[in-house]
Structures are given as C-alpha cells and as structure tokens.
Design a binder for these strands. Structure first.
Lengths: 179, 179
DNA sequence: GTCGACATGTAAATTGTTACATGATTTA
DNA sequence: TAAATCATGTAACAATTTACATGTCGAC
C-alpha cells in the first residue's frame, strides 16, 4: 500500500544511484556508514523504497538475481533534474535547510556548473534574509529570555551563519572549478 | 489510540509549559511564530498531544472551559528533569544534535547551573571527537568525491564547527552568569 | 560445523501532518 | 453582517522505523 508520491528517501536513493549502480545491500552500507540524510539503514527502510522506485520505472535491475544492482533510468534522471531545479523557497531555508544541501549533494553529474552556482547563490541570499530576521528577533526578544533559552536561540544564529559561510566558500570553489 | 510513550513533541510541550502555563491555542502560536523543533502548529499536532499529556497526569487544567491554560504537574517536571539528565551519547551528537539543543533550551528553571555546564561541556567534548572523525574521513575520502558531493560533506564540517563554537560561547556565558 | 557477515523481505507500529469540521468572538 | 481570528477537535494519511523472518556463503 506504499503510496507513489516521491519522498525525500526516494530522492536520496535516486541521488545515490545517479552516480553509480548499486545493490540494495550496497546502498544500506552507505546509509549505515555515512550520515546521508540520517535515514535508517535497516532493511525495512531501503528495500521497500527500492521496490517502489522500480515499480515507477525510476530505477531498473538488469538481472533478476539477488545482489543485482539497481540502476537509475532516464525517467529517474529526469525526476532528479526536476528536483534539482525546483526554486528554493524561503520556507525551505527556514525549516529544512538540510534538504537543500542534500539536493545539492547529488547535482554533480546531472546539472551544469551555472545551475549549481545559481542554486548556491539563491540559497545564500535567502539565508542572508533569514539571518536578518533572526537577528532582529534576537535583538528585540532575547532580553526576555532566560539564559539557556537565549543560548539555544543563539545556537540557531550560529547555525545559519554556518550556512552563509558555507555558501560563500562553495561559490568560491565552484567558480574555480572547470566543472 | 495514541501510544503513551513520551515523544519529542511531548517533551517540547512540557518544556514550553515548564516556564509558563498556556492554553492549547497559545502553544500553537509559539509553534507557528518560532522554529521550535520545526513541529507543525496545526491543531492536529498540538491538541491530541496535550490530551495525551493530561491523561498521563504530566499536565493539568484547573478549569474545564475552553482556553483553560495547561500547567505542568510535578510529575511532568520530574519527567523533564529525567530528560535533561540523560547522559548525552555519541550517537545523539552524530544524528540528532538539534534534539540536544532543544533539551538544553528548556533547562532554565528546573536544573542548576552546574548541570547546565556539565551538559554543554559533555556536548562540546563529543562534538570535538566527532569532528575529528569527520575530518579524518574528509582527508581520506574527499579526493574521490565529485565537487558538489565534496562541498555537501564540507557543509557538515562547518555545521559541527558551529556546534563547537556555540559550546565554547555558551560555556563562557554560563560561567559569567550568576544563575 | 558454527558463527558472523551477506542479502532480502514484510507486517505492524510509531509519529506526526493534512485536511476537514465546528462553533464562538472580534472587528470592520 | 460579513470576514477574520480565536479555539478545539478528529479521521485519514504519510513517511519511516522496528522487529521479526529467512536463507546463503565464507571464515575459522
């Protein structure tokens, strides 16, 4: 009864397969040994999701045997590209910035440098705006906060300053790379 | 059929009520206008959770009327304190650092300064360890990464460096506060 | 020959969110 | 008096995760 809407997990799996075909188990290893979206590497997470992608013709297996690697289809690639090129919203920057980084992480083979640069630039600009809002709120409200709550809020500030720092660093790197 | 396990949302609600009694609607306002754990402020999120806390005697309403504020019970406070004093694990630092900051955010009225300091110190030390692991991985593997993937990984590095920076800043502040 | 890693699978539970519904009370 | 906001509620859904089950295959 798995729905056929494309979830973050689905995009993550497609993103992984976009650079290299892998078996279900190999994918689980990646999830287990890296942070990758903080998804569980357990079988119940990976295998049903891969099956669903297969049913939707976003991935395919050449062979029927176990261990048969999944490879992304052109349809799958198309969907990823659509994901990559969705305009970044202020909401996403405020609520799910990690998803934006995830999106960026898989862009290597499917989009050209200008688009990557546009993506990071837009991200940076929205982060700047959001940071101003946070700082303004901080200035006005933080006086009323008890110490720990205030510090927790400041954690958020530092967090977004990190996003900004990364954006600038990433842009510099992208501009110095010949794609 | 809501289970009676205490979820992150439950702790967040208790945390909010620990400093001040509020009605369900007032709590929704907080969720709507601040980031607070990124939970939805929709009625379907807040009201059932509050009902559950009431059934578990972790909060109470003096009056039966609508708008009646919820206040945390001693039992609720006890549970929060248990949450606050759970030892921080390496796993939490690697997978859910935001939950640790959330925990810290509510500590003001229920725990004394030494415990807050111990909490941040432990957090900082585990962040340091994790950062070393990340950097070591980066040194060994990043060469094999394509540009965007490499940058995404470096985002993680900056992120944890932010945690470290915050920890040090927070410790300084805590030591200069007379609680 | 058995113990651990390889490899896949599914049912049930968990945790929250969306969408819808309902009525009171302000405000314009 | 119409529209907006206040205020609470619930049923259905969504997105994973947990826990269990099953068999293979190599190492010791």
């Amino acid at each position: 009864m798995t729905s056929s809407r494309i979830t973050v997990l689905d995009y993550t799996l497609l993103g992984l397969l976009q650079s290299e075909s892998r078996s279900g188990y190999a994918i689980r290893q990646v999830f287990e040994h890296t942070a990758l979206g903080n998804f569980s590497s357990s079988p119940g997470t990976i295998y049903p999701a891969l099956k669903k992608l297969k049913k939707l013709h976003l991935v395919r297996q050449e062979s029927q045997e176990k261990k048969a690697p999944y490879q992304i289809t052109n349809q799958g690639k198309g969907l990823l590209i659509k994901w990559f090129t969705q305009p970044i919203t202020k909401e996403e920057v405020a609520k799910t910035p990690h998803l934006l980084i995830l999106r960026f992480a898989f862009m290597d083979h499917l989009v050209k440098k200008p688009l990557k640069i546009a993506f990071v630039t837009r991200f940076r600009d929205l982060v700047k705006v959001y940071l101003l809002e946070l700082k303004s709120f901080h200035k006005q409200q933080a006086i009323h906060f008890p110490p720990a709550a205030k510090l927790a809020f400041e954690h958020g500030l530092i967090h977004y300053e990190g996003h900004l720092k990364w954006s600038n660093q990433a842009l510099k790197t992208l501009l110095n790379t010949k794609d």
